[in-house]
Design a protein around this nucleic acid. Structure first.
Lengths: 237, 237
DNA sequence: TAGTTCTGATTGTCTGACAAACTATATTAC
DNA sequence: GTAATATAGTTTGTCAGACAATCAGAACTA
């Protein structure tokens, strides 16, 4: 009765144990992508468990792309798709407000932290494509963009940083922002009302600073461009 | 024969399909943590698959903490542990050099992007604890720290940003840096040889800037402190 | 030698069975 | 009538067996 409320002292299931054992097996053997694994029968025998338990553990590896298997051929290890697991868990309804705000903050950190990389790597073509995006974007009022335009611009920006993992992460994070716009609608409206007089920082302006190589001005502008989110996550502390 | 090399055109397994269907089911019903799921028998019936297939899909959810189940009670949804899947996939031997360098870059982005948050939130106690860490740290030579000391300092630093998810992410990333030190040993030695005359930026110095509230100086110092990693990932472009 | 067939191995899926743990109801004792 | 107990049913955890689909390699044949 007490144990059912406290998550502590919850002994790991057989599947958990098998998963753990297999992972340490991979590590200790320093297996590399392309290496083959023993068959299920051999593994189940070596681990002393039923095939179903083994397969439930292996299924987890398949989800993260760590394992690939074909009938008649066997199983081979693959380079895992790092964020597959994250993507499954990214359900705004299942996340607490704290975690949700954390994730919003995570994106802000990325957007600011990538500045140096972006300015180091930016090319003519990046500028040209960004200009085209800015030109074609759908603007509502007072420099607010349609979700798609906003997404396109920021994804293209971040792609300059030349870091596929960060880009993927940002992509997975994006739905949280759409959810936040609904979920914290009251806050958003209040914020906009309060700052109705001020000029917001537009994508055009960010792009201008990037073109001119004004890094610090860009950083400040980006902070202002995303200020509404900075203010949103601030009170939680 | 051709199909075996190309990953394209690989039809998803039944388990994959069931996983997908369940996820959309969770979303469409807007299920929240604590909500109970139908039993396995009912689900397997509704989905038209065997219990083993269903359980292999459910096992994936258990890995990311999205699902919790106890014999005799049933299954309930939980707030997922976002980075569980990432942690399993974080095996340096299984990652390509490109992905590995991406991850190193990811940390650099975080470390720089968190600067604003750190300076906004830093308290007296943060400073005190950081001073204690710096005082007790194990230094090798020329301001190089033991892995543990280095880890302690940077984790404590990032904790000021008050973002649990980012902190967790950094923690999961850390083993990649230890691996990189071994894997790119030649590069590291060359770098240190080349810069043997220069003074490296120490933790003490970073802390000093933080104490004085000199944000821009801190940002530059942090870039220099981590310069060896910036240089390591640079050539890949 | 080249092509074909056969055999065995391997994964994917289904079904059935039983144990363990829990819920709810029914029963009994007072 | 109430409280304690016993019982039955439900649900998850695990195992075992079976069969289909697929593939690799050996054996065989022309």
């Amino acid at each position: 009765m007490l144990n059912s409320d406290l998550k502590i002292n919850q002994k790991p299931s057989l599947v958990d144990q098998v998963e753990e054992k297999l992972l340490t097996y991979f590590r200790e053997k320093s297996l590399k992508p392309g290496d083959t694994l023993p068959g299920e029968l051999a593994l189940k025998e070596a681990l002393g468990v039923g095939r179903s338990v083994l397969r439930e553990a292996l299924s987890r590896f398949r989800m993260v792309g760590l394992l690939e298997s074909k009938p008649g051929r066997g199983m081979i290890l693959r380079e895992p798709a790092l964020f597959n697991g994250l993507e499954r868990a990214m359900n705004p309804h299942l996340l607490s407000e704290g975690k949700l705000l954390d994730l919003l903050g995570f994106r802000l950190i990325i957007e600011l932290g990538a500045v140096d990389f972006i300015f180091d790597n930016v090319t003519e073509q990046d500028i040209e494509e960004l200009e085209q995006i800015v030109e074609n974007q759908v603007v509502y009022e007072n420099n607010r963009f349609s979700p798609q335009s906003d997404y396109d611009f920021h994804v293209r920006l971040l792609s300059i940083a030349n870091n596929e993992s960060v880009k993927q992460f940002q992509h997975i994070l994006y739905p949280m922002f759409e959810f936040a716009k609904d979920n914290f609608q009251v806050f958003f409206e209040k914020y906009r009302e309060k700052h109705s007089g001020e000029e917001l920082v537009s994508h055009n302006q960010l792009l201008e600073y990037l073109k001119l190589g004004k890094k610090e001005a860009y950083r400040k502008a980006m902070k202002k461009h995303l200020d509404i989110y900075f203010q949103l996550i601030k009170p939680k502390k």
